[in-house]
Design a protein around this nucleic acid. Structure first.
Lengths: 338, 338
DNA sequence: CTGAAAGCGCTAACAA
DNA sequence: TTGTTAGCGCTTTCAG
């Protein structure tokens, strides 16, 4: 049995209360007794039981992140930074991967309530509002991403895709592109719709054209980007630049382009979203929208803290800016071939 | 305040014990009372407090993984599978990223003891034995990787680099390569030494040659692979094939090769270790050693379970096989140019 | 400055 | 079949 405070109290010939005071640095203990107790704690490698402490205060000091796809480097970089931030703030991170499956999301939520975590960060938008209510009812604050709604105890982080897509389109326009394609995210997700609409709006405002067969859906993964690219290039007319909903999609598009004998960026330019470290590992390095993971993680934390202070208060909306990073997957538009 | 069993007991006009029985599916409750209680639980969305349960029987049902580099896709894939496995087995996963820093490892260990996790999986070998003892002393089982030692409560997973390197070297030999280079892991880590020694032994046994300047250290990251490759090719004589300590290193080597104007695999073959999904995203797709993440995760779990059963029992050694996956980064040896 | 005691939410004897 | 009760390890009044 791991040692308990009682045992060390007995050894020191004091009460558990005194031991507790020493551990918590209370000033009302003689330096002498304090020193004696501390040395015993050292000898026994005693570490207090956190669950008992929690049971006392009703806080677990654990936050949880519910993630759609841990294989996506963007999420893992985010998780890494978020974890670091939590540790700095004396909290722990519990992770739950949902594999894009709603059933696993539901299950994760239940587990988080069971664990009495102090907050839940959803890194995906694909969730029914009902699930969130169950958390808030249990006084667990929530922060969502691109959910486009707030509620008591529930904040939302909104990624500025409108601004980002405008930057990408502008960049492509300056390179002389006029015909653009777009490989979106998974059909049916709010975030997919916003990314696509942002792209379409930006293209329209820039006076660039696209057409039906050039706007396809993907799945936020490499194979979806690959398939999307092949679909776009299956017709007789092709765009000179393709924008994708995220970087994994762009990587797939890049691979398909190579297989189709297209040179990037000479024959076709490709631009992604969600900069990831790997973006400058693939060849050619990807032009992409960069979302600061640090800023994102900071917002997640702030939002959860805000909710913790008063769970009945309606959450805040955090705006997450994005910036284009130009690398080598975009270049001057080729002569139109059609 | 989240509802407690007492309140729902009061509402149902029964004792907390009965409520507890219903929740735990005890057969000794009238179907009638049981139904009434269940319906109240439903209405109030009551979820029992796990910390109290833990406090009762001394298990947190949480395992933790201590990871050197969450940015390494290999670890992330492993974490994802491990998390899935734990959830299936009614446990949760707490993660701690150490960024290869010993101080962060120490800190993580302390936190895990504080949390009274039921087991700790070290995904890196870089740790002092002392740290592990602190865990075992607190009755927390441990599993290490490539630590090459076991102790009470401490199992070890040994990756079969010897066999893997032999496969790689054999493959290169069949392609006609005779002069090999090697970019290792971080200087000073046991796992780096083993990978390098395995390579050297395999090369020697195959009768292939290497030389001092062709055996360099890296850091298990992309930049280390890049630097290592440049170092190897800075001399006047060059190997025709380079083996790396992991895939991130191989990706860096690939990038350096491209910058140096070397074609892969025409001018130089490159082979990695630790297959990761991204291995077939880079171009050319990497020839590499595949370590089954599923098998690895299963071993971690089994080892921890084994330790939980009897913490005083000396841990087991698990052997993790690896297999070469031939892709396109290796090819026939070019004519020797020296 | 220190101790006694209550209680956080739950489980598991032991009684009834 | 159900209730009573004693803790699990800790914090925190309230008394000394």
């Amino acid at each position: 049995m791991p040692t308990s405070m009682r045992e060390i109290a007995k050894m020191a010939g004091v009460s558990v209360a005194t031991v507790s005071r020493v551990i918590n640095g209370s000033p009302l203990v003689t330096e002498e007794t304090s020193a004696r107790i501390r040395s015993i704690i050292q000898d026994l490698h005693f570490v207090p039981n956190n669950s008992a402490i929690y049971l006392k205060h009703g806080k677990s000091q654990i936050y949880s992140a519910i993630i759609p796809d841990l294989n996506n480097p963007f999420f893992m970089e985010l998780v890494k930074i978020f974890e670091g931030l939590l540790v700095e703030n004396h909290r722990e991170l519990l992770i739950a991967n949902t594999d894009f499956r709603s059933s696993r999301t539901q299950d994760s939520i239940r587990r988080m309530i069971l664990r009495r975590v102090d907050g839940v960060a959803f890194l995906s938008s694909e969730l029914e509002t009902g699930s969130i209510e169950a958390l808030v009812r249990n006084r667990i604050p929530v922060v969502t991403t691109d959910h486009y709604r707030t509620a008591p105890g529930t904040s939302d982080i909104v990624v500025d895709f409108a601004g980002g897509m405008a930057q990408i389109v502008q960049h492509l326009k300056e390179l002389g592109h006029t015909h653009l394609g777009f490989i979106g995210g998974t059909e049916g997700l709010a975030t997919s719709r916003v990314r696509r609409d942002s792209f379409l709006t930006a293209a329209m405002q820039a006076g660039l054209t696209s057409r039906k067969g050039w706007i396809v859906s993907g799945n936020f993964k490499v194979d979806g980007g690959d398939a999307g690219m092949r679909s776009i290039f299956s017709g007789t007319q092709h765009p000179t630049a393709v924008v994708t909903a995220n970087n994994l999609t762009a990587i797939g598009a890049l691979r398909a382009a190579r297989d189709l004998g297209l040179h990037v960026p000479q024959d076709v330019s490709i631009a992604g979203c969600d900069d990831i470290e790997l973006a400058d590992i693939v060849h050619p390095p990807l032009t992409t929208l960069r979302i600061s993971r640090r800023q994102y993680a900071g917002m997640l934390f702030d939002a959860l803290q805000y909710g913790e202070q008063d769970i009945t208060r309606t959450g805040k909306v955090f705006n997450l800016p994005v910036n284009i990073v130009v690398r080598q997957s975009t270049g001057p538009a080729p002569r139109p071939r059609s």
